[in-house]
C-alpha cells in the first residue's frame, strides 16, 4: 500500500495570536510550530498502522519553505519513510492542493490522507480539492479506516449521524478523531529521521484564486457578571431580558 499523507504546520495550540504589517501577516514572533494535530494524530498514525499490518510505504508531503524542516523531521521521526517539500509559501488551500495533486499525479498512491482541517485556517478544503484534481472519490471526516485488498472501509461523520462506506483504491480521505491515537516519537525514530530522504521540489506556477488580505482580533469581552449560585432565577431573568437568548 503506497500512502501519501499531507501535513501542514500550524502554530502550537497555546500560541498567542497576533498580527503585524498593518494586520496583513500572522505575527510569528515567539510562535512554536507543530505538525497540525489532525494530520499528525490521525492521518499519519493511521497510515503507519496500515503499513505495519499490510506493508507499504508512507510518504509525507508539505507545501512550505525551508523553515518547515523541523515539522517534517518530526513526522519522519514518528515513522514516515520519506518526505517531499514543495518549496513555496502556502498562500491558500487551492494553491496547496494543486501543488500536491500535481505531485500525486506523477506517483501512483493508493491512499492520499489529509487531516480534517488545519487549526489555523480551518478551511477543510485541501482533501476535496486534491480529489477533484485527481478525479478520485473523497471520503471526508473519516473516524475509521480499514483496508482489505483494494477495498477501503471507512466510518464517517454525516449531517446528524455516522455512516459506514466502502470504496476502491485509489481514494482521498480526510481524517478525524477516532481513527488513531497520538504517537510520541522515540529516540530511535528521531535518530533515523535525520537520514530519511527529503526531496525538495519546485512549485508549479498557478493562478491565485483567493488572498488573505487582513486579519482582525475579536473585540475584548466585557467583564463577567457574577450570579449567586442560590439564585438561578436571576440568571434565567438575565438570559431572557438582558442577553435575549432564551
Amino acid at each position: 500500500m503506497n500512502i501519501l499523507v499531507c501535513i501542514s504546520k500550524s502554530p502550537d495550540t497555546t500560541s498567542k495570536i497576533a498580527f503585524t504589517e498593518g494586520n496583513s501577516k500572522f505575527d510569528e514572533n515567539g510562535v512554536q510550530y507543530i505538525v497540525n494535530p489532525y494530520d499528525e494524530w490521525y492521518a499519519l498514525v493511521r497510515a503507519l498502522e496500515l503499513k505495519e499490518t499490510i506493508g507499504g510505504n508512507v510518504t509525507i508531503i508539505t507545501v512550505g519553505n525551508a523553515g518547515d524542516e523541523a515539522i517534517i523531521r518530526k513526522a519522519l521521526a514518528i515513522g514516515a519513510d520519506n518526505a517531499v517539500r514543495i518549496d513555496a509559501e502556502p498562500t491558500d488551500a487551492y494553491f496547496v492542493a494543486t501543488q500536491i495533486a500535481a505531485y500525486a499525479k506523477k506517483n501512483a498512491f493508493d491512499l492520499v490522507l489529509t487531516g480534517k482541517e488545519t487549526i489555523n485556517y480551518n478551511g477543510s478544503q485541501v482533501g476535496g480539492m486534491i480529489a477533484e484534481h485527481l478525479e478520485l472519490p473523497y471520503v471526508s471526516l473519516a473516524s475509521k479506516l480499514d483496508v482489505a485488498g483494494n477495498v477501503v472501509t471507512l466510518e464517517q461523520e454525516i449531517v446528524g449521524g455516522l455512516q459506514v462506506v466502502e470504496v476502491n483504491t485509489p481514494v482521498v480521505v480526510s481524517c478525524a478523531k477516532g481513527m488513531a491515537e497520538q504517537r510520541i516519537p522515540n529516540m530511535r525514530g528521531i535518530m533515523a529521521a535525520r537520514t530519511k530522504p527529503l526531496e525538495v521540489i519546485a512549485p508549479e506556477s498557478i493562478e491565485l484564486f483567493t488572498q488573505y488580505e487582513t486579519y482582525q482580533l475579536p473585540d475584548a469581552k466585557k467583564a463577567c457578571t457574577m450570579i449567586d449560585p442560590a439564585n438561578m432565577e436571576s440568571l434565567v431573568e438575565l438570559l431572557h431580558n438582558e442577553a435575549k437568548v432564551i
Partner: peptide
C-alpha cells in the same frame, strides 16, 4: 458550511476554477 459542503465546495472550486471562501 456543513459536512456535505466541506467535501463538495472544494471539489467545485477546482471543477469550476472558482475561488472558495470557506467558513
Amino acid at each position: 458550511h456543513d459536512l456535505v459542503a466541506k467535501a463538495v465546495a472544494p471539489r467545485l472550486s477546482v471543477k469550476l476554477k472558482a475561488g472558495l471562501i470557506s467558513g
